[in-house]
Structure formats: structure tokens, C-alpha cells
């Protein structure tokens, strides 16, 4: 098990402080969600069995657009 590694998974079911999280390819695991405010359907970052943050999907797409824009605008300046 990699220690500082955290992986993204999607919450499919919540039971109090624990959730069933789908890590893709049919891998379902129980994850402790005490540390986050998460709902079914959210993507959470899971580290050593605990969700430590919720992913903002919109933010991910905006980041890519922003990078694209930055790279473009600088090409124009050159």
C-alpha cells in the first residue's frame, strides 16, 4: 500500500460514517467519510481507507480550460 497515495472514487451508498466507494472496474470498498461532507454521487479522494477531500468536477474542467488559455495567450504574445 502506498502511503501518500490517495485515489479518487465515487460514492455509491452512505451508511452513517461509512460509504461504499466505487474505484472503477467493479472495485467497491468501504471508506470512512467522517472527515468530509460528501453525498452519493460525489467523487472523493481516499487515503488509507478515509476520504480526505471531495473533488470539484467543475473545477477540474475549468483548470484544463484555464491552462489551455494561458498557453494560447502566451503564444500570441511571442
Amino acid at each position: 500500500m502506498a502511503m501518500c497515495l490517495a485515489i479518487l472514487g465515487k460514492i455509491v451508498k452512505i451508511n452513517d460514517s461509512h460509504a461504499q466507494v466505487d474505484f472503477g472496474e467493479g472495485v467497491l470498498r468501504e471508506v470512512n467519510i467522517t472527515l468530509v461532507e460528501a453525498r452519493v454521487g460525489d467523487y472523493v479522494l481516499v487515503h488509507a481507507g478515509y476520504a480526505i477531500q471531495v473533488l470539484e468536477e467543475k473545477e477540474a474542467l475549468e483548470t484544463l480550460n484555464l491552462w489551455d488559455e494561458i498557453l494560447r495567450s502566451e503564444t500570441e504574445i511571442e
Partner: peptide, 8 residues
């Protein structure tokens, strides 16, 4: 572990 693990 670091701050990723200590909260757990």
C-alpha cells in the same frame, strides 16, 4: 504517515 494519514 504525514498529514494525509494523521487525521485518520
Amino acid at each position: 504517515g504525514f498529514e494525509t494519514t494523521a487525521p485518520s
